[in-house]
Design a protein around this nucleic acid. Structure first.
Length: 283
DNA sequence: AGCCAGGCCCAAC
DNA sequence: GTTGGGCATGGC
């Protein structure tokens, strides 16, 4: 089965699934993407305003995909605000015009972005894929391929670094194991998620967990908690902030301040435009 | 071949 | 509170 909706603007599958916010969606020949999310597997395709989700019914669309794909947000007006007095941001936002911030599963973002640290994107994808296939729960089969969820905290905390060796996580393996145990101690992902949603400063609070520092916490806040004001700064962001705003590459404080003052509640969206822009330009 | 990647931990200031 | 070395792996 499949479900379609019309009049979807500011949407581009390459921009959304290849802008570094997620690691499990795979591009198909026709430009659609297939991937697992929120316990389902689907194919997302887009053509001239029509969004089609295959392997989903209306119920799935309403309860999962509409929010996962952030369809209820008006990116057009957000772009207007961001572009108003910022030519560089305008160029970046026009380059990645179809980016939308996916509202991803909290636990998945925690695991994914711990793995992402000091790592490159192709390799991150491989690590997560291997982790899920080896230790994740079966989700379902789609077009001949079986899909598995990100392993639960219970599963991860029961493993040793040697168990995880096939996943090639390097020094991140012990981070995952210990972090998973900490999550269990705090009542599991849903309990932690609720606590972080109510936290005054989730980016600070998330750093109590082993393997989560400022950058990973910012990504989790943005992609897993819906904190669109979060502004993750990695080497790419330092690079682009230097190139287009002239801020010293080592001056993270000024970068954060710039984001707060200029992008405000939409810092995370601005960050994705910039991130996708600098990586695409390859300069 | 060597530098680099969506950084963090930990010890030493 | 800040700074710097060490870190596992493989993409390019």
């Amino acid at each position: 089965m499949q479900y379609s909706v019309d009049n979807i603007k500011d949407f581009n599958t390459d921009h959304i699934f290849d802008c570094g916010q997620c690691f499990r969606w795979v591009r198909q020949e026709d430009g659609s993407y297939i991937g697992p999310a929120m316990g389902k597997v689907a194919r997302v395709s887009y053509n001239e305003g029509t969004l089609t989700i295959d392997n989903a019914d209306e119920n799935d669309f309403i309860h999962i995909w509409r929010s996962y794909l952030d369809l209820d947000r008006n990116y057009g007006s957000i772009k207007e605000q961001l572009f108003a007095s910022d030519e560089a941001m305008k160029a970046a936002g026009e380059y990645g015009y179809g980016i939308r911030i996916l509202n991803q599963d909290f636990w998945e973002t925690v695991v994914s972005f711990i793995i992402s640290q000091n790592n490159n994107i192709p390799r991150i994808k491989g690590c997560i894929e291997s982790l899920c296939e080896n230790f994740g729960e079966y989700i379902g089969e789609y077009e001949g391929k079986k899909y598995y969820a990100v392993p639960t905290p219970e599963k991860l905390s029961s493993l040793t670094a040697e168990d995880l060796a096939p996943c090639r996580l390097g020094y991140r393996a012990p981070y995952l194991i210990k972090m998973a145990a900490q999550f269990i101690e705090k009542g599991g992902p849903e309990a932690v998620r609720r606590e972080m949603l109510e936290a005054e400063d989730p980016i600070q609070a998330l750093q109590q967990f082993y393997g989560i520092g400022p950058k990973v916490a910012s990504c989790i806040s943005l992609f897993g908690l819906g904190r669109f004001d979060a502004f993750p700064i990695d080497v790419w962001m330092r690079r682009v902030m230097n190139r287009i705003y002239g801020i010293d590459e080592n001056d993270l404080k000024t970068m954060k301040k710039y984001a707060e003052e200029h992008f405000g509640e939409y810092g995370g969206i601005a960050q994705q435009y910039l991130f996708y822009y600098i990586r695409g330009l390859d300069i």
